[in-house]
Write a protein that binds this DNA or RNA. Sequence first.
DNA 1: ACATTAAAGACCTAAGGAGTCTATATTCAA
DNA 2: TTGAATATAGACTCCTTAGGTCTTTAATGT
Lengths: 146, 146
Amino acid sequence: MNVGRRVDYAVRALSYLAGQPAGKVVSRADIEKSQDIPSFYLSKIMKDLVAGGLVQSHIGSKGGFTLARGASTISIKDVYETVERPLVLMECLEQGINYCSYCAVCSQKSVWEEAQLVLANFLAGVSVAEIADRQGLKGRLLQRAV
Amino acid sequence: MNVGRRVDYAVRALSYLAGQPAGKVVSRADIEKSQDIPSFYLSKIMKDLVAGGLVQSHIGSKGGFTLARGASTISIKDVYETVERPLVLMECLEQGINYCSYCAVCSQKSVWEEAQLVLANFLAGVSVAEIADRQGLKGRLLQRAV
DNA sequence: ACATTAAAGACCTAAGGAGTCTATATTCAA
DNA sequence: TTGAATATAGACTCCTTAGGTCTTTAATGT
C-alpha cells in the first residue's frame, strides 16, 4: 500500500522539466544530477514516460527530454499510472473473479472501490505544474545551506 | 500501492465474527471454512488481530475467537494497521530523512501527505459492522446458487 | 568521423507476500 | 485423569517485485 521510488523519481524528473524554459532540451545526465536519481534507473523511468506520452525524447548529440504536454495537464495520477500501473487498491477490482472466486458475493469490494476512487480523484487533481521546480532538489538544498 | 490478501482475510474474518450472535465463540476452523481462507495463514492473521486488541481469543477445547470491541467501533483503517502496518503512502512520510535526504526541501511530499490523509479518513469512516455478514462468503455463494 | 545522447534489454540482489508445517501450551469434557 | 480440541509461536519454503547496475546498439548534431 505504498508508492515506491519509481514514482518519486518520475515526479522529480517531470517537475524539473516543467521548471525549464520553454523548448529547453534537458539531458538525462542533467536531470539525474539535479534530482539525485540513480542514473541507469532514471534511464528506465524516462523510457516509460516517453512511451506513455508524457515526455518527448530527442536522440543524438545535444539530445535529451522535454515535456510532451503542458505541465498543468499532467496529473500525479497520470504519472503513477505511466511508470507503475493502473491505480488499483485491491487486485480483485481489476482482475475480478480471476483473483478471488467470491467476487460476486463480496461485501467489502465496494469499500475498496470507493476508497480507490477517492484516492484517484485526489491525485488526478494535482498536476506536475504545481510541483514544478527550476532548481531541482540539490539546488534547493544548496541554496538553503547558504 | 495495493492492499494484499492479509487485509482481505482479516476483514472477512472480522465481519464473520461480527455477524455471530453475541458471545458466540467461533473456532478458527469455522472462520476458515466459511470464509475460505488458507488455514495456517488465517492462524497468523488471528494472532495479529488478538495482539492488536480487535479480537479476543479463547484457548482450549471449545475455544476460538470473539470480537473484543463492538463491530461498529472497528474501522477498516484499524484492521489495515493491525494486520499490516501504519497506513503510509510514501515511506518518506514515516521515515523522513532516513528514507530520503531531500525530505526537507521536497516539493511533492505534501501531496502524498494529503493523499494519505484523504484515504485514511475514508477508511476510518467505514466499520466492520457495515460489512458484517452472518453467512460468510461460502454461505452467500450457496444461497445464490439456489 | 566522432563524441554525445537515448533505446533496449539483460542481469543481480534483497526484501516481502503468500502459504505451509511442526511444535507447545491450554482447556473442556468424557 | 486422560485425551481431544483448540490457540500460540515460530521456523520454513517459494515466488514475485523493487531497486539498482551494466552493456550494447542506434541515432544525431558538430
